[in-house]
Each structure stands twice: as structure tokens, then as C-alpha cells.
């Protein structure tokens, strides 16, 4: 298993945000996390690159394993973990730098100084993010000049450049138009050969289209986790069925 959660409980102060979550996600799959707003799916996603560390008064119990290692173990270095577990955020948020510098950023902050290697990785990552052809002639222009969809693919390329094995995506297409969205979905489909992808989404069709497995969260609990096909065609739980068919949420 690439990613495992064992009896995860998470609290924001007194608020019990995640309740006893257990999940096992195999390598090279796309897993969608769905559920109504505030159900804890994003909080859960952010546990796996320790993005919740800086939140004051937050408390975690249980084990988060990536590649068999508990990432909250004291011996784990957070920056090394984040090199292995990339993340793409909801809104396209390129850095105020050139396209090239955006992709090179992760390598540079991790101490890579070999310019030739950086240039190679930038190209490979942009190719992998299906953006290379659109930007190869303007690599040194500001990333703000790109369209929203292009910016999001740039953010994916940026995450790929440091060669992670896991890619966490927090509603990566929710701020994009339908055409850009379908490009991102195609991209996700292609990326699973090399990466293990966990994607949080509000869009049920999107979950059905891109994922192999789906987890349904509600009120901080993982209600159901199974193959996407089974989940959408024949959900075991009545709550899941209500949510999927649109009767709730």
C-alpha cells in the first residue's frame, strides 16, 4: 500500500474533524475523496504532506503511513516528506516568477544547483503536465500571463518537478472552465502510471471519470470506500446513495 491511514482522529481545538479514519490506497491509482462541504476530506488530504502542522490548537492521533513509514514519526523531516508527496491546490497559484522559475522552484529550494539538470526537469515536468507545447517559447515570461487552466497545469508541473511518488490534489479543477477541467482530467489519467494520486473533488462526475477508487466522507467519518464503479453503481451505504444521487449535499 502506498498510503495508509490507521485510526486517524483529528481535532481543531474542541472540534472533532476526523473520526477514526482507516483507509489503504494502493500505488499507481487515482483515489477520489468526495463528500459535502466541511466533511473533513480536505483536512484528511492535507495530513499526508503535513500541511496541517502549522494550525494552532490542532491535534492528531493515529498513524499516517506513506510507503510504509509513519510520516508523523519524529525522525521524519517535513521537507523531505514534501519532496515525496506533492500537492496541487484548489486555485491556480503560480509564484510571482517566470514560468521556468516556477517549475524550477522546488528543485532550487531543495538544494539542486545543477543548471543542466534543472533545465531537463523543467522540460520533462512541463511535458508531463501537457503544457510544454504551449509555453516552450515563453518560458521566461511571467507565469501570471497564462490562462487559469494553464496556470493550474503549471502548478501540476511545479509539483512534478521534484519527482514525488504521491500527488495530492485539492479540488484542482474547481476554479476552472469546462475545457480546462477536461484537460486536467486527461492529465490525471495519464499521470497515474507514475504517481499515486489522491484527489478531493466536489464534482461527482469528475470523481466517476478520473478515479479508480472513491472514498465518501461525511461529518468527519469515512462512510464508504470502494472501487469507483461499484460506489457509483451500487453503493453499500444509504447515505452514500443519497449523496451520489443528489438527494443530499
Amino acid at each position: 500500500m502506498m498510503i495508509e491511514a490507521k485510526n486517524i482522529n483529528f481535532y481543531y481545538g474542541n472540534f472533532h474533524a476526523l473520526k477514526g479514519i482507516n483507509i489503504a490506497i494502493p500505488a499507481n491509482t487515482v483515489t477520489a475523496l468526495i463528500g459535502p462541504s466541511g466533511c473533513g476530506k480536505s483536512t484528511f488530504l492535507r495530513l499526508f504532506n503535513r500541511m496541517n502542522d502549522t494550525i494552532e490548537n490542532a491535534k492528531l492521533t493515529g498513524e499516517c503511513l506513506v510507503n510504509g513509514q509513519n510520516i508523523y514519526d519524529k525522525t521524519v523531516q517535513v521537507d523531505a516528506l514534501r519532496k515525496n508527496v506533492g500537492m496541487v491546490f484548489q486555485k491556480p497559484n503560480p509564484f510571482p516568477k517566470s514560468i521556468y522559475e516556477n517549475v524550477a522552484y522546488g528543485l532550487k529550494v531543495n538544494g539542486v544547483s545543477d543548471k543542466k539538470y534543472i533545465a531537463e526537469r523543467v522540460e520533462q515536468s512541463l511535458v508531463a503536465a501537457a503544457l510544454w507545447d504551449e509555453v516552450k517559447d515563453k518560458l521566461h515570461q511571467s507565469a501570471f500571463a497564462l490562462s487559469g487552466g494553464q496556470q493550474q497545469r503549471l502548478c501540476i508541473a511545479r509539483a512534478l518537478a521534484i519527482s514525488p511518488s504521491v500527488l495530492l490534489m485539492d479540488e484542482p479543477a474547481s476554479a476552472l472552465d469546462p475545457i480546462s477541467t477536461s484537460k486536467i482530467e486527461e492529465l490525471i489519467h495519464g499521470l497515474k502510471e507514475k504517481y499515486t494520486i489522491v484527489i478531493v473533488t466536489h464534482n461527482m462526475q469528475q470523481a466517476a471519470r478520473v478515479s479508480d477508487k472513491t472514498g465518501f466522507f461525511m461529518y468527519g467519518e469515512l462512510i464508504e470506500y470502494s472501487d469507483t464503479k461499484k460506489m457509483f453503481l451500487n453503493p453499500e451505504n444509504i447515505q452514500t446513495q443519497n449523496y451520489i444521487t443528489g438527494r443530499f449535499g
Binding site: M51, A80, R82, K83, G86, F89, Y105, G106, V109
Partner: peptide
């Protein structure tokens, strides 16, 4: 967060 997420 994007910067932290890249290991910065």
C-alpha cells in the same frame, strides 16, 4: 502553502 508543499 504551495511553497511549503514543495519542501521549502
Amino acid at each position: 502553502e504551495s511553497s511549503y508543499a514543495l519542501g521549502a
